[in-house]
Lab assay of single mutants.
Amino acid sequence: TGEEYIAVGDFTAQQVGDLTFKKGEILLVIEKKPDGWWIAKDAKGNEGLVPRTYLEPYS
C-alpha cells in the first residue's frame, strides 16, 4: 500500500530507474526517501523514482 499523489507537472526520466509521468497523473508513493526522490508506481504498474517537488497529495 501507499499514498496517492497527483503530478503537478510533466517529468521525463533523466536516468535508468526514474519514472516518466504527465501532469494530472495519479501516482502511488511507496517509499519517501530523504533525498527528495520518492519511489512511486503509476496506473500501469510501472515503478520508479520521482521528484517529490512534482507531486501533491491527492484526496
Rank of each mutant, 00 (worst) to 15 (best):
T20H: 06
G9D: 14
E56L: 11
V8R: 13
Y5V: 02
D10L: 02
Q15E: 10
D35L: 05
A13L: 04
A40C: 08
W37M: 11
Y58N: 08
V8D: 02
Y54P: 02
G48C: 02
E31Q: 11
A43D: 12
S59M: 11
D18V: 15
T12I: 12
V29Y: 01
V8I: 15
Y5F: 11
Q15F: 09
T20S: 15
V29E: 00
I39G: 03
T20P: 13
I39M: 14
G24C: 06
W38T: 01
R52P: 15
L55H: 00
A13W: 04
L55A: 01
T20K: 05
D10I: 02
D10H: 06
L49M: 08
Y54E: 07
A40P: 00
G48R: 01
Q15T: 13
G45N: 07
G17K: 05
Y5R: 01
I6K: 07
Q14P: 06
E25M: 08
G48T: 01
G45H: 05
V50E: 00
Y58L: 13
Y58T: 09
K41Q: 11
L28Q: 09
D35I: 03
E3N: 09
V8F: 05
E56Q: 09
L49K: 14
E3F: 08
S59K: 15
D42P: 02
G17P: 03
A40D: 00
G24V: 01
D42Q: 03
K41P: 00
D18G: 14
G17Q: 06
D18P: 03
E31C: 08
E25Y: 04
I6F: 06
I6Y: 06
I39H: 11
E47G: 06
P51H: 14
D42N: 15
A7W: 01
N46W: 05
K22V: 10
E4D: 07
A43S: 15
V50G: 01
F11A: 02
K44N: 12
D10S: 09
V16N: 11
L49F: 13
G2M: 13
K22E: 07
E31V: 11
E47I: 12
R52M: 15
E25S: 09
K44Y: 13
K44V: 10
I6D: 01
G9E: 15
A13F: 03
R52D: 11
I30P: 01
G9P: 00
K22Y: 10
V50Q: 00
D35T: 08
Q14F: 09
A13S: 11
K44W: 15
E31I: 13
I26Y: 05
P57E: 09
G17I: 04
R52A: 15
A43Y: 11
G2S: 12
E56D: 07
Y54I: 10
Y5Q: 02
V16D: 14
S59R: 12
L49A: 09
W38Q: 01
P57I: 09
L28F: 10
Q14Y: 08
E47P: 05
G2A: 12
Y5D: 00
D35V: 03
N46G: 08
G24E: 03
E56I: 13
G17E: 05
A13E: 05
E56G: 04
A13Y: 03
E25G: 04
V29H: 00
E4W: 15
E25D: 15
F21M: 05
G2N: 09
L27D: 00
S59L: 12
K23W: 06
K41H: 08
G45A: 05
V50M: 02
D42Y: 01
L55Y: 00
K44I: 10
W38E: 00
G17M: 05
G2D: 09
S59D: 14
K44H: 13
I39T: 09
D10E: 06
I30Q: 07
K44Q: 14
V16L: 14
T20L: 03
V8W: 04
E56F: 08
R52Y: 14
W37Y: 10
E47V: 13
E56H: 10
G45V: 01
I30V: 10
R52L: 10
P57V: 08
V29S: 01
Q14C: 14
D10R: 03
K32C: 04
G9V: 12
G2Y: 14
Y5G: 01
W37I: 09
E4C: 11
K22A: 08
V8H: 06
N46R: 12
T53S: 15
I39P: 03
I30K: 06
P57Y: 08
G24Q: 03
R52V: 10
Y58I: 11
K32H: 05
A40K: 00
F21K: 00
T1H: 12
A43L: 12
D10K: 03
D10N: 09
G36F: 05
K23I: 07
F21L: 05
I26W: 06
F11V: 05
K22R: 10
V50F: 01
D10G: 06
N46P: 01
E4Q: 15
K23A: 09
L27N: 00
E25P: 00
K23R: 12
E25A: 12
E56A: 14
F11E: 01
L49Y: 14
Y5T: 01
A13D: 03
K22W: 08
E47D: 06
L49N: 11
L27R: 00
I6E: 04
V8G: 04
W37F: 10
G48N: 01
R52E: 14
A43K: 12
E47Y: 13
E4M: 13
I26C: 05
E4L: 15
V50Y: 01
P34A: 15
D10T: 06
K41A: 07
G17R: 06
E56W: 09
A7M: 03
T12N: 12
Y54S: 09
G17C: 06
Q15H: 13
V8M: 15
D10F: 04
D18E: 15
D18W: 15
T1M: 14
V16Y: 10
F21T: 02
E4V: 13
K22D: 04
F21G: 02
P57H: 07
W37T: 08
D10P: 05
L19W: 01
L27Q: 01
E3M: 11
P34W: 10
I6M: 10
R52N: 15
R52W: 14
P51V: 04
V8K: 09
D35K: 03
Q14D: 09
Y58H: 12
I39A: 06
A40H: 00
Y5E: 00
V29P: 01
L49D: 03
T53R: 13
L28P: 00
V29D: 00
I39V: 13
